[in-house]
Amino acid sequence: MATRGERIFDIFLWLLAGLVFVVLYAPVAISALFSIVEVRRGDILWETATLEWYARLWQNQSIMDAIRLTLVVGATSVVLSAMLAVALALYVTREDALGRRFIELAVYLPFLLPPIVTGLALLMFFSQVGVSRGAVAVIIGHGAFVLAVIYRLVVTRLQSLPASLVEASSDLGATRWQTFRHVLWPQIAPAVVTGSILALALSFDETLITSFLAGNEMTLPIRLWAMMRVGFTPEINALVTVVLLVSIALTIVIGLRLRAGGRE
């Protein structure tokens, strides 16, 4: 039985949690609200409620271009870094791997460094080797950035597998490739998928590195940024709400997957 003091403490904790929740999400809720109704001199005009701004987004060519680029960049960079992450993880978890620490450092640094440093470094590097700013540069940039996330999940999964699985497979006559295909891949696939979704969410929101590398092409967050400099319109609120909903959806999927993985 909880004592009176404990109950008061519990109520206090709930209030605190509620306050944090409000501070974090009220602005977001207001943004979503303003994308539907008009506000004049502090009064919400419910009769103006409309989804028109969402429809306008759909018709806005530059926004649709930005959405398309965001999806292309996200998909390409995630697929490329997923493949690289799996290859690196397989190598690093081998008993005789050389330069394990160095590889891990190289993988984690772009993710851990301030994005402004990563972005600037990539920009200077690309201009030296002659890769012009644009979609390709952004894809490479995002790939380097999200690599760490997929890599970490795959390495953790591989390390949790008993070494005898691989030994048993080769003992029964499997080549390295056959062992990967029949034994390792089915074991790490869920981790690769979870890592990729997480990476997709990161790529979707990434702004700073992208702003260095995008040039004239714009991903969604960059487009949003550009629009806000001109003026604050309900259209922006609608776009923010869309970005928000996609992010929330991805987060829920990741959360569910990580929890399911932990229960295994």
Partner: peptide, 14 residues
Amino acid sequence: THKRPFNTVFQDYA
């Protein structure tokens, strides 16, 4: 290993 003509029963069964 994969070309050796004998097989192993592992301690953890694997």
